[in-house]
Design a protein around this nucleic acid. Structure first.
Lengths: 254, 254
DNA sequence: CGCTTTGTTGAAAAGAGTCAAAGATCGTGG
DNA sequence: CCACGATCTTTGACTCTTTTCAACAAAGCG
């Protein structure tokens, strides 16, 4: 599982072999977090947290008790890639299903980014991907409910495919409609009706804890989904091309 | 104007004198961007962009033509602090009002962050603040319209106060109700009705291009607004420096 | 001053929430 | 392995929110 962290950072396209060698020396443990409980409490935790199995989320609870889910964290994702900095979010991270979590010593990573600037840059990059994704979630919130829901399931398909947890058009999915409502800002009843409507349109079904998308291209078109904002494994080539381009520009300047 | 960039980075609290000295050597120009036009096009722009005057936004347009505003950029803010990295957002930045923009040479900054890791860290920090803010905007989207609107105007009050562009409970505000609708995901008509309702409740008024909040504490309570997520100059007495900065801006305007 | 943009209001229609009840599914203990 | 209770899903009826369309008023601008 060691490789999950390296894989995550390597995907950014900014690391070189020496960085990866350094990362390979990190020792960390895994533990199980039961569904519904927080993965860490407070800030300046002892560790960074990487999801190995299961699904987690970042969320915020308003004073009136409303919970809003702000991002989904799937296997291979860091919950808190920013942790080497003393930055405090006012949002929390909880397991939505039972999770296997890798605890990566924070101080070790803090030391590493001092010695290996490219590792810091990779973590910064991961922060940028989260920002990019959060922006699209925000943009998605202003849309009609059926497109909003469809867009979410498109994103999840691509992200799970990137870590081998989805096939061409389906994946396991264990969240309740209440939790989906916290993601979309809809009531669970309305989530149910939207899902029914998407099913009737032949776009997708959620049944038996599994999402099935008969015609992915059609759903993506319906949702106006373009995966570029994920900067995902599939995009690794694009990241590298971008990096090459920027280096080229740098040379021309020099 | 030079100081605006330094102040922005200094607020993160991660810089030391040598970093600031290095930043002081950057030369850059200012230009005017008319309301409605993009501040930069495409990626790998020649420059980073810092708003000196006016108000800008990051936005996304869906295929059906719907525009969603994802963040507001006010004087002292960087449009693209990530620019030293070859990271591409799928969102754009436009001036909402006429803006004075400082163009900071990208390559210069890219070179600087290689030599001064703390400057890179400051920019990463700024990215984290944007992520934190975007998360709260996302959380805010799931709420009833009146609280959503109230929360936005609380945030703007605090951010403008930090750069001396708001007094205790009021500030200039030039956006149309249509643009507010693009921020909140509401129709302009409903924005109008929500503002009317907030006025009738005695919570706030928007009139004559100015927002007035008679009892800030009451509005903040109504909106469940807690400014921590803005990481606004909390430490290091940065508020005072920002105030000094704003006085400087005011003088240069006069 | 007239023209364009922005703000305001009303009425009808669509979207989404709430409440309540019945089915389905899951997990657990017997 | 089954029965039971708890949780989750589905559906209907009703209410409230928000959109759309349309018209008119007000404000900004040349």
């Amino acid at each position: 599982m060691h490789n999950l962290l390296i894989r995550k950072l390597e995907q950014t396209g900014v690391l070189k072999d020496s960085d990866i060698e350094a990362l390979r020396c990190i020792k960390f443990k895994e533990r199980i977090v039961t569904a519904g409980s927080n993965i860490y409490h407070g800030e300046f935790a002892e560790n960074l947290h990487l999801i190995v199995e299961g699904m987690a989320c970042r969320y915020k609870i308003w004073a009136d008790g409303d919970r809003r889910i702000l991002s989904l964290i799937v296997p291979g994702d860091l919950c808190d890639g920013h942790a080497p900095l003393p930055f405090m979010f006012q949002t929390e991270v909880a397991a939505l299903t039972t999770c296997k979590v890798a605890d990566i010593p924070r101080q070790t990573m803090a030391d590493l980014i001092d010695l290996y600037p490219r590792i810091a840059r990779a973590l910064w990059w991961i922060t940028l991907v989260k920002l990019s994704t959060t922006q699209v979630w925000l943009a998605n919130m202003g849309r009609v409910a059926d497109k909003r829901v469809a867009h979410f399931f498109c994103e999840l398909l691509v992200r799970l495919q990137a870590v081998g947890l989805a096939d061409d058009g389906s994946y396991d999915f264990n969240l309740t409609q209440l939790e989906l409502g916290e993601i979309f800002g809809l009531s669970n009843v309305h989530v149910n009706r939207v899902l029914k409507s998407l099913k009737e349109l032949g776009l997708m079904t959620v049944a038996n804890r599994r999402v099935t998308i008969p015609d992915v291209r059609r759903l993506k078109k319906f949702a106006d989904f373009d995966p570029d904002y994920l900067h995902d494994a599939a995009d690794l080539g694009a990241n590298k091309r971008a990096l090459a381009l920027s280096e080229q520009i740098a040379k021309q300047r020099a």
